[in-house]
Design a protein around this nucleic acid. Structure first.
Lengths: 251, 251
DNA sequence: AGGGCTAGCGTACACTGTACACATGGCTGA
DNA sequence: TCAGCCATGTGTACAGTGTACGCTAGCCCT
């Protein structure tokens, strides 16, 4: 009576027991007067996390925000982790690219910059991704699709294209994550999030420098460092990665 | 009676009220028969997180593991976040480098590879770093010191050296994080952590591909992809980043 | 020998994610 | 038109979390 119905689910159900969220999302009857929606939930959760941080996002709080009982959420989401997946997917905006789709450098640049903007606009993003392994959400796949498209005309094997994309993604996520970290640290201390990182350094590294270990770093700091221009640095890094990959792949 | 004692703490205490952990660590009297140590705590926490995952690491559980009351830990750590900082610092091993210190490429390669190994050996590392903004821990500073040293002979400004290091770090963290994510996902499903990623793809992307969106990705998958060699891919990416940066900086 | 400082203890509180049983209202087939 | 069903939303309960607070007991120095 309750056994798997057909061969389709046979393999997956062994581990999952419930179809994996994105599959449920599509063929949802959601017939009766439903006050909730996956979209509505995701948007409320995103808004809450944006406003008060990921640590303020609890199922109870989110339910209140939606004017609904806590457990109502679990009709749409199997666990809080799935809620995070929903949020992660929700903030990726695979809008039409303005870059010339034939110019692969321009496409990768645009996608990279957009990702940085997204991560800065939703500082919980990177932490959430680290907490809930969730590659292959629909929106991210759509972005991947664009990237593959941009590489199409190049003489690369399928494996090389995937490597290319993964390496660029790695830099992008890493750089965005580092920047978010710096901002959160600044905010946690007194200074506003977009202040000068050097204040942070001066202050909390004073004893490090004074300690005499790290002489080279001390020298650099004392010689004077310019304020960090994160946007420019991101572009520099991205360009370097693209250069390096292009050279290695001979394109 | 309880006011700040001297000018040293004046600025920092405004925001912190307690000296920032690393400072406390050094000048600790810890005179009386102390059964606990920062080191002992950090090691036990790391062992626990390694064995059972970051979500199994609770103050109660850790205290039991150490044969001590829960609140005893708070004599050494102001909050769980500080515990995480301790752990993050503990797993970085700035051992003597085997690479020729004058060969900056070799140094960066070695440090990058070591970081990857560390992240894979302690899969909670990246998530913990995303959760607790904690650049500038002593061990990481020591590594930074090495990197600065390697760049010393090059004709770069201080700012350029810092940019160089930050960009490489961004890629390193991003790539390691992605790899850890993949592994955790594989383990969460049935397959062992070091299995073939293609299994994961085949299985959980079946409906994605069948849906007809993502035609390009479907084509790539159907044309057949080789198993992913993560180690080689990491080296490729790292080399590309170093190439790209070197070219941009003209070194 | 005694006083004080401090490492460690125990309890208590507000809060978390979620399992489970129950109510209810809109759609469906007759 | 109306019965009945089932998905949607509700309420309560439980084990477990981080940590504030006040207490005890032993080491160190005078």
């Amino acid at each position: 009576m309750a056994e798997p119905k057909d061969s389709f689910t046979a393999a997956a159900c062994a581990a999952d027991a419930v179809p994996p969220l994105w599959e449920r999302l599509e063929s949802a009857p959601r017939s009766g007067r439903a006050t909730l929606t996956h979209t509505r939930i995701a948007e409320a959760a995103v808004a809450l996390a944006d406003a008060e941080g990921l640590e303020a996002l609890s199922m109870r709080r989110l339910a209140i925000e939606l004017g609904v009982a806590t457990m109502a959420l679990y009709r749409y989401v199997v666990s809080k982790d799935e809620l995070l997946e929903l949020m992660i997917d929700a903030v990726v905006e695979p809008d039409a690219l303005t870059a010339d789709p034939a110019d692969w450098r321009a496409v990768f640049r645009e996608i990279g910059l957009r990702r940085r903007r997204t991560a800065l606009a939703h500082p919980w993003l990177i932490a959430a991704q680290a907490q809930v392994p969730s590659l292959l959400t629909p929106a991210r796949n759509e972005v991947a699709e664009r990237m593959i498209g941009a590489l199409e005309p190049l003489p690369l094997t399928g494996d090389q294209k995937m490597q290319f994309i993964r390496v660029v993604d790695a830099f992008t996520n890493g750089a965005a994550g580092a920047e978010v970290n710096r901002r959160m640290m600044m905010r946690r201390r007194g200074h506003g999030a977009d202040g000068d990182v050097r204040l942070l350094l001066r202050e909390s590294m004073r004893w490090l420098l004074r300690s005499g270990r790290y002489p080279r770093m001390a020298k650099l700091v004392q010689e004077g460092l310019a304020p960090v221009d994160s946007a420019a640095e991101f572009e520099l890094g991205l360009a370097a990665v693209l250069d390096g990959l292009a050279a290695r792949f001979g394109v």
